[in-house]
Each structure stands twice: as structure tokens, then as C-alpha cells.
């Protein structure tokens, strides 16, 4: 049976010059990191950019010798991704609003067209509905749900990251699951 190589071993070998180990590390965690970013920014194209930025930052940290081996790899990467997503929103807020001749916000138009194209990627209607439900949750609940479920951060880590107590983080998760359940029930979506 093929033995799973630990993140620690892959990182060590990558730092020593084995490029293949980086590919293994990315492939091992890419879906969780990408889904976390996608759930935060809710735009596939921005998520792709932030995914690349996140791992390029990871590479730079490895190569600078600043990586702290004591922490878990995935939660560390997710924290980087979350910070980049927050920076993205801050920058987007500062961006001047450009309008077309008829006064329409061209970024809004771009966003709509991107979203339409995004629909092409989504094959399963039910999955799309679940994503809509996640996006309907209040931000604080959505954040805990995404960081715990997709980002693999523990409730303790989420509490520290969001500056709340562990009971508050758990409470937000409880409300998130409860609200999801209510919406599913209202929309009559089968859990099977």
C-alpha cells in the first residue's frame, strides 16, 4: 500500500530543492484551499487569481526560510488565502467607479458577464443551490462554516483568527447549520 507522505516531509524536501514535492503538496490541498477562497469571494475568476497569489506567497515563505514547522500546513495556507481575500475586497472598495457612456457601472457589467460564464462550469443544479444557501447565511456564520468545513481550521483556530471565544465560533457554526437546514426545508431540497 502506498504510504501517504506528510506535509512536513514534502515541505522539507521542497525546500531542499525537490520541485515535485510542491506539486504533491498543492494537489493534496488545492480543492480545500480553492473552495475556501471561492466561498469567500464568490467569483471563480477572482478565486483563481487569489489561489495563485496564495501559493506564490507560500513558495516565497518556504524559500525565505521563514516557514514555522510547528503549525499545520493547511490552516496556515487558508489564513494566507483569507487575508488576501480581505485585501482584495479592501482594494476593490478603493477602486474608482468607472461608468460607460450610458452611465452603467462597467465593473458591474463585467461581473454579470463573468457570472454568466461561471454558470457554464456548474453542472449540478443541486450543488449550485447549496452554494446559494451558503451565500445566504450571515457573514459571520458563513465565515465559520467555510473556515471549518473547507479550510480545515479547528474551532479554536477560527476563534483566534476572528477574535472571538470558542463558544462564539461554535455558536455561529450551530446557527449556520440550523439556518442551512431551515432554508433546505423551505426550498424542499432532498438531503438524500
Amino acid at each position: 500500500m502506498k504510504e501517504q507522505i506528510t506535509d512536513k516531509a514534502l515541505i522539507k524536501q521542497y525546500i531542499q530543492g525537490n520541485e515535485a514535492c510542491l506539486e504533491m503538496l498543492i494537489n493534496k490541498h488545492k480543492n480545500k484551499v480553492f473552495t475556501t477562497i471561492l466561498m469567500i469571494v464568490n467569483d471563480r475568476y477572482i478565486a483563481e487569481d487569489l489561489f495563485q497569489e496564495t501559493f506564490i506567497k507560500v513558495i516565497k515563505t518556504f524559500k525565505s526560510g521563514k516557514y514555522n514547522e510547528e503549525g499545520k500546513f493547511l490552516p496556515w495556507v487558508v489564513r494566507i488565502a483569507r487575508n488576501l481575500a480581505i485585501d482584495h475586497f479592501r482594494k476593490a472598495k478603493r477602486m474608482p467607479k468607472v461608468t460607460s457612456q450610458d452611465g452603467e457601472d462597467i465593473f458591474r457589467t463585467f461581473e454579470i458577464s463573468e457570472r454568466n460564464r461561471e454558470q457554464e462550469y456548474i453542472r449540478d443544479q443541486r450543488d449550485e443551490t447549496i452554494r446559494e444557501i451558503i451565500n445566504m447565511l450571515p457573514d459571520e456564520q458563513k465565515q465559520v462554516l467555510v473556515l471549518r468545513h473547507y479550510g480545515d481550521l479547528s474551532f479554536k483556530e477560527i476563534a483566534a483568527l476572528t477574535d472571538v471565544s470558542i463558544n462564539t465560533a461554535l455558536g455561529r457554526m450551530r446557527y449556520a447549520l440550523n439556518n442551512m437546514r431551515k432554508i433546505i426545508s423551505e426550498k424542499s431540497i432532498s438531503l438524500q
Binding site: 480543492n31 450543488d127 442551512m180
Partner: peptide
Amino acid sequence: KTLLDGEMEAP
């Protein structure tokens, strides 16, 4: 949680 797992997307 199973429903949420179905939402996992790849870059």
C-alpha cells in the same frame, strides 16, 4: 456536512 462536501471545487 455531506451536502457541503459536494460543493468542493477544484482550481
